[in-house]
């Protein structure tokens, strides 16, 4: 079944909601209305209100801002770093490639999730620790994909033609090799953003993500924990949003990967 068109719709809606939150959100994200706490969804509050009387929909729109702004670099920096290392290794070859291949084999065996928690624990909460941890753990897969793809492309006739016409090696790399080995990397990038979203939300749920005051989907679910028995909506909406976003990114990533086969 083709899910990716739904994915594109959901992601577009999420990006629009995040970008336009200051204009679209019905209430300011921190505005408390103590006369209307823990409400079920209604016409005034589409997704209900939390124990402080804050509008859940508005908070979720701002939470999307936080999450999407983190997810793009959390997958994007490893993409650039890993892509460059793996791509350069395959292009240059020789001892450099052997070294990188050996390093990848060793690094790939490392327990990424546990080290991610440890790194965030040591570096402290906040966006920069999350990004450092994701970069250190995430570049490996990208480097592996880039290495495979560049090895495939580097023997192609148009690359050979570029050499023979006297184009410098560096220029061939950036003008011909990279554009033609990009597809699989981009497919994994989209999938990876979905995984990063789940992990960032999970870390924030446990108090290891961004600071407590910032609206964030995982942190919203954590806040809902104490009240969820009386107000299930509180945990339901942010959770469903996480599932839908993860599903969308995964299905788009899958579709991109298969299209190139």
């Amino acid at each position: 079944m083709r899910l990716w068109p739904f994915g594109v719709v959901i992601i577009s809606a999420a990006v629009a909601a995040a970008l336009l939150a200051p204009w679209l959100a019905p209430y300011p994200p921190g505005e408390q209305n103590l006369t209307a706490i823990n409400q079920a969804p209604s016409v005034e509050h589409w997704f209900g209100t939390d124990p402080l009387g804050r509008d859940v929909l508005s908070r979720m729109m701002y939470a999307l801002r936080t999450d999407l702004a983190l997810v793009v670099p959390a997958a994007g920096i490893p993409l650039l770093l890993g892509g460059l290392i793996g791509g350069a290794a395959a292009y240059v070859g020789g001892i450099f490639d052997t070294g990188v291949r050996w390093a990848l084999d060793v690094f790939q065996g490392m327990p990424a999730y546990v080290l991610l928690v440890a790194l965030v624990a040591v570096l402290g909460n906040g966006a920069s620790s999350l990004l450092i941890a994701f970069t250190l753990m995430g570049w490996i897969v990208y480097a592996r994909i880039a290495r495979t793809e560049v090895r495939r492309v580097r023997e192609d006739n148009y690359v050979l033609a570029a050499y023979l016409s006297g184009t410098p090696r560096m220029l061939v790399f950036f003008r011909h090799v990279i554009p033609n080995s990009r597809a699989q990397l981009m497919a994994y990038f989209v999938t990876d953003m979905g995984m990063a979203l789940q992990i960032i939300a999970g870390l924030s749920f446990f108090g290891l993500g961004v600071s407590q005051e910032t609206p964030e989907l995982g942190a919203m679910i954590a806040d809902a924990r104490l009240y969820i028995q009386t107000n299930l909506w509180l945990g339901l909406f942010p959770g469903v949003a996480l599932v839908l976003l993860g599903l969308s990114m995964a299905s788009i990533g899958d579709a991109m990967r298969e299209r190139r086969r």
């Binding site: 789940q198 999970g202 446990f206 969820i228 599932v243 993860g246 995964a250």
Partner: peptide, 13 residues
């Protein structure tokens, strides 16, 4: 495919 994308902490809750 949808279930794979359910965060474990949320499902547990």
């Amino acid at each position: 495919i949808a279930v794979v994308n359910v965060p474990a902490f949320w499902l547990g809750l």
